[in-house]
Design a protein around this nucleic acid. Structure first.
Length: 523
DNA sequence: GGACGGTGAAACTTCAGGTTGCCTC
DNA sequence: GAAGTTTCACCGTCC
């Protein structure tokens, strides 16, 4: 089927979107980077501004959406402002850099038909069920190991699958934009005619394998090497590759690793003299700490990394950065924030400052790992800024990490700190345990230690806690003692009543706005 | 003469996604 | 590989 789209802007993607909107239908544009998704959305919003005027009703609805998106964070970031700008025209962008709340707003209003177009990265094609009349794929190549690579056919199918809303439309259109004739042919061969590639078992990936292996042993599902091999030979991995030799050698390597970490023991340690046949029958058992590692479902490699760091911390001068860097240098935290050329000196300077408090040995400058080590220091510095109440806009500027990505990292850090506290408890390091718990709480709220007492209250986050603190309400006791009216001027009436309730006081507060002559409060 | 500013070409930089656990104040 | 950003050489202008 051929259809000619009016060329209004000279940009195929924008023309397609405008055409879709004129047909009173919705489109999703898939871009290959976050930046491109944002830019496309912005360009479309601008083009709409020129091409057509919105009805009063639309304008009002879009204003509301825009306001909501702008004010999801305590201080709007550049990203928030950009999104707000697009939303005013009924356009949105959607990627992992957005905070959950913003994504929700966008998804909901797209479902309602309010938002006409979403420009997204592949996030939107996985899991989420957001159908549109048109799925427009701007570029089917993405940056990979060797420059621009074609994305997997499976991913193309996922994106194309967004086209067509069964309830509303009889048809849907999946459109791939080709910049040149050869690219058009390639797209046709590769995706339209091509078969989706086989999904291969993730068990092949070593971190997953060792985690899985440890939990099998810890749960007592497998006892000796024969059972282990039997088990894995029935997995998808073995089924797919029909090659047990490679898998066996990986398993053997993993068993040795787990033993070195003291997460498992085997009977072979008990008898020194044994025949080769015996070795096959040795029983493996998880140690108490190995059991905990398995229960937490954390990669044993990471668990060992943390335990070693905790042990090393005894002989070190602990700084605010010590445990943050410990967390930042785990595999789970990857990909880390990358040290850019311009920052290189700054990070090294910070490293010199904190080098005595680093819990892991610093790799040599000429080592390959050195770059990754610097990255972990940068990531740790980012966490440090966060717990020192630097706001998200400043963090975005300084580290170029968007709010949504910040949340993901914080969530990971929280989980890793939880695991760390568990390990600290098991290796009986009480003082460290206290330090870790404190850090975890600070990370959760993004606040300095002095605010922790106030943060226990529901409805009080880093911003309100700081306001209270600078008005000399520093503890729960201060909250109890404080004048309800003053409290309501700092955090608002509703919150004031709520927190007074939490400290066991029932108060009624007259609307503070009606009273005149109140002295200004420090905020 | 030199400080300043505008211009454009060259060099450099960056590039998708996001689960596991617990209840502690 | 491509788009965006920074750097830098170059030139003209003004004081």
């Amino acid at each position: 089927m051929h259809e000619t789209i009016a060329s209004e802007t000279g940009d195929q993607t924008i023309d397609l979107v405008l055409d879709t909107i004129n047909k009173l239908k919705q489109a999703i544009v898939f871009a290959n980077t976050k930046r491109s998704a944002e830019k496309t959305a912005e360009d479309i919003a601008k083009a709409i501004g020129k091409q057509r005027s919105l009805s009063e009703k639309e304008t009002k609805e879009y204003e509301e959406l825009s306001e909501k998106a702008l004010n999801t964070l305590s201080t709007p970031t550049k990203q928030c402002k950009r999104l707000a700008f697009c939303l005013k025209k009924g356009i949105a962008f959607h990627h992992a850099g957005l905070v959950h709340k913003q994504k929700e707003i966008i998804e909901d209003s797209f479902r309602k038909g309010l938002i006409k177009t979403i420009c997204a990265t592949p996030t939107l094609s996985f899991g989420l069920d957001l159908p549109a009349y048109r799925a427009i794929m701007k570029d089917l190549r993405r940056f990979g190991h060797r420059g621009l690579d074609w994305i997997p056919t499976l991913e193309y199918l996922q994106m194309a699958g967004r086209a067509g809303r069964p309830k509303y439309d009889i048809t849907g259109q999946a459109i791939a934009i080709a910049s040149t004739e050869p690219i058009k042919d390639e797209i046709y061969e590769r995706y339209v005619k091509g078969e989706p590639e086989e999904v291969y078992s993730k068990l092949a990936v070593e971190p997953v394998l060792r985690t899985y292996l440890l939990s099998l042993i810890a749960a007592g599902f497998v006892k000796d090497k024969k059972q282990i091999i039997d088990f894995f030979s029935k997995t998808f991995w073995a089924f797919q590759y029909k090659d047990m030799t490679k898998l066996t050698s990986i398993i053997e390597k993993m068993l040795k690793l787990l033993k070195d970490y003291r997460f498992i023991t085997s009977t072979e340690e008990e008898n020194e003299f044994q025949s080769a046949a015996d070795m096959f029958n040795h029983e493996y058992k998880a140690t108490p700490i190995g059991k905990r590692v398995a229960e937490l479902y954390i990669d044993p490699y990471t668990a060992n990394h943390i335990i070693q760091a905790l042990k090393a911390s005894e002989k070190k001068e602990i700084s605010e950065l010590s445990f943050l860097q410990m967390i930042a240098s785990t595999l789970e935290m990857r990909p880390l924030l990358r040290v850019r050329k311009k920052e290189y000196e700054d990070i090294e300077e910070a490293l010199v400052k904190y080098s005595d408090s680093m819990l892991q040995e610093e790799p040599s400058m000429y080592d390959e790992e050195y770059v990754e080590f610097l990255n972990s220091v940068k990531t740790a510095l980012f966490f440090k800024d966060w717990i020192n109440e630097i706001d998200e806009e400043a963090i975005l500027e300084k580290y170029s990490i968007r709010p949504g990505e910040t949340r993901i990292k914080l969530n990971l850090a929280d989980w890793l700190f939880y695991c760390s506290t568990e390990f600290a408890r098991m290796i009986k390091k009480k003082d460290i345990l206290k330090e870790l718990t404190k850090l975890r709480l600070r990370l959760k709220h993004g606040a300095k230690e002095e605010l922790l007492p106030l943060l226990k209250l529901k409805g009080i986050g880093r911003v309100r806690a700081r306001k209270l603190f600078s008005n000399r309400i520093k503890t729960i006791r201060d909250v109890k003692r404080s004048d309800p009216l003053k409290l309501s001027q700092i955090v608002g009436k509703k919150t004031a009543i709520k927190i007074k309730e939490q400290v066991g006081q029932k108060v009624e507060i007259a609307s503070p706005l009606k009273r005149k002559g109140q002295k200004g409060l420090k905020v």
